Amino acid sequence: MGARGKTVWLGLGSNVGDRAAHLRKAIEGLREIAGGAVKSSRIYETEPVGPGEQAKYLNLCVKLVTDLPPHQLLERCQQLEKHLGRVDRGRWAPREIDIDILCYEREILDEDGFVLPHPGIADRQFVLVPLVEIEPELVLPGFEESVSGLLQRLRATEGPQGVVEYRIRHQGGSRILPESMRYVAVEGVIGAGKTTLVKLLAERMACMPLFEEFENNPFLADFYRDRHRFAFQTQVFFLLSRFRQIQDHFQQQDLFRPQVVSDYMFAKDKIFASLNLDENEMSLYQRLSGLLEKQLPRPDYVVYLQADTKILMERIRQRDRYYERHIEEDYIEGLNRAYNSFFHYYDDSPLLIVNTNHIDFVRTPEDLNLLLDQILKGPQGVTYFSPGVKH
């Protein structure tokens, strides 16, 4: 793909067969066509338009960048529809998959039935609702007001139509996170059990797991041997890696498991930086960190797993990761104090603080169920949870 490309918005719909699977495969195909990221709205279930009885549609809109000119892009979209099993039943008929080019940059076109922007956008809430979600200030070529304004005016004249967000139910998930918890971060000092809990949440609640790629840091093993010498390289690598990973994930988020549970949060990077960097390094780090953090979403809910230093050290020894073998207890003690201080003042998201000293949510199902029940209560300020602690 070229350095620039053209920005395009498309509408997708399906009301035959496994509607969600058709949409998922269509997005995968569009990623191949674009050769890069595809930004998507949520999925909406909508009433069919036109004469005759039909099943409800699933609709969404996507945004992508392409080097293909309009007619070639249309041809590729039609080839993708055919590949995904679309049967031509005529106008207003049910469809396995429908991929419409809604808007192609600032292009205005009317050639051989191919019209840009797509005719009827301003009269269809099932198009405008997902389009507004991904690009609320978009002004279509030939229009004077944004798509948000078009939707507001349409709703004022004909009332809200049957456009309802659609949530896929996964057979593997016996529980469902509250709708308000689309992005959950699990935090804690090394050895607290963050990654393990995220795996369990993903399995039981049909969430998309997001794991920190700490093993890819080439400075980590050296840092644990000589923290002063390798602190800045290690910290900047982590900062940029965490930024890239979160940004990439949310740009190509899996619509069919839209709720994300992560074993780290970007803001926690500051904790390690404050412990490991000198004054000059910290000044440079803060400038870089501040620029990056503004571009990332904040968690809707944070779970902070606490444990005493002795317990953390025992867990670290038991898992025996080669790059952690030189970790000193004083370092974990310092981290513990820094984490507790950070979350004492943390107020960017609702927070659940869990004392894990007396529970084993890995080997004891009762402990895991207690913790899951507490998480499922949902965001409500700061909550302290100390299972197994006798008062």
Rank of each mutant, 00 (worst) to 15 (best):
Y104M: 07
P117N: 02
L80H: 10
R124C: 01
E53S: 11
W92H: 14
Y44M: 02
R76S: 14
L68T: 04
D110K: 10
G113E: 08
E75A: 13
Q79P: 11
K82A: 14
F114V: 07
L68E: 09
Y44K: 14
L58Q: 12
A55N: 15
Y104V: 00
V87E: 15
H83W: 11
G90W: 12
V87D: 12
G90P: 07
P48V: 04
Q79K: 12
H83S: 15
I108A: 10
Y57G: 09
P117G: 01
G50A: 05
R86P: 13
F114P: 09
P117W: 04
F114Y: 13
E47M: 03
F114S: 10
L64F: 12
Y57C: 05
D112Q: 13
K56D: 15
C77V: 13
G113F: 09
E111A: 11
G113A: 09
I108N: 03
Y104I: 01
G50H: 12
Q72F: 06
L109D: 06
E45Y: 09
E47L: 04
N59H: 10
V65M: 05
R76D: 13
H71A: 12
E53H: 08
W92I: 03
E96D: 08
L109A: 07
A93P: 07
L73G: 08
K63N: 09
D98W: 08
L60R: 12
D67Y: 12
E75H: 13
P51V: 05
D123T: 02
H83L: 13
E111G: 01
I97E: 00
P70T: 07
P119C: 01
Q78P: 15
G120F: 00
D100C: 02
